[in-house]
Every structure is written in structure tokens, then in C-alpha cells.
């Protein structure tokens, strides 16, 4: 039976505009919902599909506020079996600290009851909000596991995991012996919606709590701000199909026609 761990992050779900709080230290989420970062939502789906295909158990791990339990319950509603929350203290977070805490959490989970290493650890390629592109890599390195990012396809083949990564006009193939880790990208699958049965199961999920900490790293956020709006004067070329000659003129002036 495969043991798969999936790490997820709770992030705001923005629409057309993202605002910043008055102190400049966070996204103003007063009018926003929260969601699982998109790559990681696909990571949970992929882990559940592998477990369904090959037989296995899916554990979802998150570092975040108490409300991040919602993301663990959502994962359970689409098929994950266990949910583990490492409560964040609300203080500064940076990629080094986050990765150190996650690696320690995984060590604890793996040493509990002599469970041994997870066969596969699934990260999102990067988070939708801070987008540091490193927590998965740092965590895997801390655990001594191989990791490949940008993964758009996973195939389990005995003790090995074969993964596909998109490149311009095709894909690359990597093959790792498990235990291994991957950073997956949206598009690897289309996540399912929770069923009624799944929703009921998620309500019964007993969330495991791990209290852990690690020292701050060398990168400190000073503030968030919105970039200067690029206000371009939009030239209206016309209304309806009559605008076609004006469009062709533009294409000719750019040398693409």
C-alpha cells in the first residue's frame, strides 16, 4: 500500500483585483474567500487518484492558521484520509522557516508508530500568493529525497515513480526511486468536486495537530504594495465586424501580417 503525503497552503481567492491591508503586511482578505492554492488542489486530486489506482493512503499536511483546517476538510471531502495541521503562530514566515517546519513535521509523522517514509510527497510547484518557488525543494532536500518540479504527469511503476514535465512543444520524462517528492502544476488533472458522501466524511475527519517551530530565515517581508497601474489609452478601432479593416491595419503596422 502506498503512503502519499500532500502539502497544501491556504490562500485568499482573489477576483479581478487584490488589495493590501493598511499596514502593508498582508492581502486584505476582508471580502475574499479562501481556497487551497491551485497547484496543490491538483496535488490532492493526483494523490487521491494514485491511491485509488494503486491502493494507498493519502495524508494532507498544512502549516497555517487554525482556519486552514477548512482546507484539510476539503481535501478529505475529495478523498484524502488524514489531515495534519501545524498551527502557525501568526508571526513572520519565510521559505526557510516554512520548509524547516514542514520537514520536521514529516519526520514526526514518519517516525510515529514506526510508519517509515512516505513513498511519495506531493507539493504544489509554487504557491499562488507568495510564489517563492522553493518550499518543496528545501523540504525534500532536508529529508534527503529526490524532487522534480513542474510535474504534469505521474505514473507509479513498482518501486519507481515516472513523471512528466512540460517543455516547449513536448515533455521531459524523469524517473525516481521512491521515496521521492514532486512539485506538481495545475493541468495534471481536473480536480473533482466533493460528493455528499465525501462531505460527510470530511465532517468526521479528526484533524491531527503538531506543534512545531523553526528559526527565521534571511528573507524578511517589509511590505506589500500594488504595482503602478499601467493605464493604457485604449484606442477603440470600431464596433462589430466593420472594425476588421482597422484591425488588419494594426496587424500590418506590427509586421505580423
Amino acid at each position: 500500500m502506498l503512503r502519499i503525503l500532500c502539502c497544501v497552503k491556504r490562500v485568499p481567492a482573489p477576483g479581478a483585483r487584490i488589495n493590501v491591508t493598511a499596514d502593508g503586511l498582508a492581502v486584505d482578505a476582508a471580502h475574499l474567500g479562501f481556497t487551497t492554492s491551485p497547484h496543490e488542489e491538483c496535488g490532492v486530486e493526483e494523490a487521491v487518484q494514485i491511491a485509488e489506482r494503486c491502493g494507498g493512503e493519502v495524508t494532507v499536511l498544512t502549516l497555517g492558521p487554525p482556519e486552514a483546517a477548512e482546507q484539510l476538510r476539503y481535501a478529505a471531502s475529495v478523498g484524502a484520509h488524514r489531515g495534519v495541521l501545524v498551527p502557525a503562530d501568526g508571526g513572520a514566515r519565510d521559505p526557510q522557516r516554512t520548509a524547516a517546519i514542514l520537514a520536521e513535521a514529516i519526520r514526526r509523522l514518519e517516525s510515529a508508530d514506526g510508519a517509515g517514509p512516505f513513498d511519495l510527497i506531493v507539493f504544489g510547484n509554487e504557491s499562488a500568493d507568495s510564489g517563492g518557488f522553493q518550499v518543496g525543494v528545501r523540504t525534500a532536500y532536508g529529508l534527503g529525497r529526490p524532487i522534480v518540479n513542474g510535474v504534469k504527469g505521474i505514473e507509479i511503476d513498482g518501486p519507481a515513480v515516472r513523471v512528466r514535465r512540460e517543455i516547449d512543444g513536448g515533455f521531459e520524462v524523469y524517473e525516481m526511486e521512491m521515496p521521492a517528492a514532486v512539485g506538481v502544476k495545475e493541468g495534471i488533472n481536473l480536480p473533482r468536486y466533493p460528493t455528499m458522501k465525501g462531505r460527510l466524511a470530511s465532517k468526521r475527519l479528526e484533524i491531527e495537530i503538531l506543534d512545531l517551530d523553526a528559526p527565521l530565515g534571511g528573507q524578511t517581508m517589509v511590505r506589500l504594495r500594488r504595482p503602478a497601474e499601467t493605464v493604457s489609452e485604449t484606442a477603440i478601432l470600431g464596433h462589430g465586424p466593420e472594425a476588421a479593416p482597422a484591425v488588419a491595419d494594426v496587424l500590418e503596422s506590427l509586421g505580423v501580417l
Binding site: 482573489p14 500568493d129 534571511g218 506589500l224 504595482p227
Partner: peptide, 16 residues
């Protein structure tokens, strides 16, 4: 640096 794919900017201090 950029956050949210470029919809926000983040000013950071780096000690390294």
C-alpha cells in the same frame, strides 16, 4: 519581488 504572479509587489530585506 513579485507576488501573485505579478499583481502585487513585495519589498523584502535580505540578510545573507
Amino acid at each position: 519581488r513579485i507576488q501573485w504572479g505579478g499583481s502585487l509587489l513585495e519589498d523584502v530585506r535580505l540578510a545573507a
